[in-house]
Write a protein that binds this DNA or RNA. Structure first.
Lengths: 337, 337
DNA sequence: CGGCGCAACTTACCCGGTTCAGTGACTTAC
DNA sequence: GTAAGTCACTGAACCGGGTAAGTTGCGCCG
């Protein structure tokens, strides 16, 4: 079954290929009557422009790329990426851009994928996540002149657009809330320490704790996995001077922490209050439901996609703050006994 | 920065475009010395073949499509899809195929996406999930002659390849295990009843229960979300004659069920045993960790991708059983008190 | 030594859109 | 009445790689 081309339409309409192209793209150069006739024929025979041909003649690939640089084990339960992806799609779909996905193991492999995609003109731009300090991907993207949007910051990304949320403000709010409840010994289980937003959070956490006169403040580094979350929680809870509240850098570790507390016979929130970063259905799923720092990840993703499309169009894009974070109190926080 | 083309290579090597094409594709028609020289130049200037040009000249788009037809809320925490995706990628990456993703709301929208992708020659094939009885997508795929692999079955997919796992055997094993522990009142919270694999499981569940002489057997339909899982669990547990064990059709509902039991003051596994379908880190994350029906979803996805690539190559593909399911006992199951 | 066969290329056209430089026909302007 | 301008469209080049058909040059054989 041969799929129709503009030549087929041209033949049936009795005009040239060029006229059909103008008609379909809303360009001037054809009369309104002819345009209608051509559009009707296109509709009738179910015409879709061959994306390859379109991409070849100087135009766009009309696709953007996203790499996921985490082991499949984590990707599965982290709601974050899926939320982000559905946000992208809402925006990309509206502009009939496709999203091309690739799971990679290392930043080096990720760079290779960018090179290949860009070299093959498979994509018009990429969305970069999990940004680190002095990220090796940034100079490569600049050198390739590959349109990109970095999610997470703010950091030094040169000419590349970035979009970030006020993590410092959020963690400050969480600590203030716990202190207002009466907590003095607050600990934190962080994500991967290399990541820029982890550093932002750690800095803000230390600052707000200092300003509120809290001592005994500790941040244990982890890696977003349940295993590490459990391990860190156990370390925090077996000490003699154990914290009465723990803030986790993601929901998965918070749920794991909750399980450890229950396993050790501690009551949540009676003996231990828990705050999760990034609200997700997971937080409401467990008992007690977890107090969380919520933000609309889909909207955040949509905003990122919008910025990327602007960057692809050669528009000036900068440093955008988006995705307001707010505290959603649930059953996992209470005054300490 | 102009990206290099085969014409650039040809100029530098002092040969024609055609020779370069032969050399790069391992075709006969160039001497070994020339081939090496051309490959070296390609390497040096970082050449990647323009995928659009390649796709245009009769070849393949070297991409396959996957649509996700679930609300973002669910997609986020269901490890299933991410596991599947990383499985696809392992296989697709090895053949340098890209994966194009689209989130859709309805099967009708999904069909539209297939039509567009195929019309645009953006993809060479699709992977279809969540198959229903008399699925509306099947006849469309056949009419379009779009290579496809259906995940979940076995069902009536005509000429389209399908890949499925032995769900009936798995649920039989789970029920036998619970009966061996001493349970007589076993309930089940199922996924969306329209889905083919839900029906397979329900049928097998009823059969094994009947054969073991269990009465009081009930399957409550739900939709894989935590909310529905909680609701169904509550309905099961408030009755006078409440079950001592519940089997859930996915991990998310099982975790939600666990939370409901804890909230109602029931001990798991003392008062209630819980079995989750589809093991994932989520099952080991909670307390107690959930006994689960495990299978290697990534491998399952990889197998599906392999079948799809075969279908794209015009090879005969059929009805493949893969992804052996086995029971992984953990802390959520025990003899009833 | 002519002719054959073959390796190692080159030439030229194809894929299906986009785009730009024409080309008539028709209108408007002086 | 004719030059200028506009409109609606045509024809052809182009994007970059794939490939069938044609062209060398060379070795080998009778």
């Amino acid at each position: 079954m041969k799929r129709p081309t503009i030549a087929d339409i041209a033949r049936r309409a009795g005009v040239s290929k060029g006229a059909v192209s103008y008609a379909l793209n809303g360009q001037p150069g054809v009369s309104e009557a002819t345009r209608k006739r051509i559009l009707a024929i296109a509709q009738e025979i179910g015409f879709n422009a061959n994306s390859a041909a379109r991409a070849l003649s100087g135009a766009r690939a009309r696709a953007v790329g996203l790499t996921l640089c985490r082991p499949a084990r984590i990707l599965g339960i982290e709601p974050w990426f899926m939320g982000l992806i559905s946000g992208f799609e809402a925006e990309l779909g509206a502009h009939s851009y496709a999203l091309t996905l690739q799971v990679v193991a290392t930043p080096e492999q990720e760079i290779e994928v960018y090179r290949r995609w860009w070299g093959e003109r498979r994509i018009d731009g990429v969305i970069v996540t999990d940004i680190r300090e002095d990220d090796v991907r940034i100079p490569v993207l600049q050198q390739l002149q590959l349109p990109a949007v970095v999610i997470g910051g703010p950091g030094d990304t040169g000419s590349i657009a970035q979009i970030w949320s006020d993590d410092a403000g959020a963690i400050t709010e969480a600590v203030r809330y716990l202190v207002a409840l009466g907590h003095h010994k607050i600990a934190r289980v962080s994500g991967v320490p290399d990541l820029l937003h982890t550093q932002v959070r750690t800095k803000a956490f230390n600052e707000v704790c200092a300003s509120l006169g809290l001592d005994n403040v500790i941040t244990l580094p982890a890696d977003y996995t349940g295993e590490e979350g459990s391990r860190a929680t156990r370390r925090l809870l077996i000490g003699g001077d154990r914290p009465t509240a723990i803030i986790y850098d993601n929901d998965v570790m918070a749920v794991a922490g909750l399980a450890v507390a229950q396993e050790m016979g501690l009551s949540v929130p009676g003996d231990l209050s828990i705050v999760a970063w990034d609200d997700s259905p997971l937080c409401s799923l467990v008992h007690p439901p977890l107090t969380a720092l919520s933000r609309d990840i889909s909207a955040y993703g949509a905003q990122a996609a919008r910025e990327l499309l602007n960057a692809i169009d050669g528009k000036k894009v900068g440093n955008v703050e988006a995705g307001r974070v707010h505290l959603t109190p649930r059953g996992s926080t209470a005054p300490p006994r």
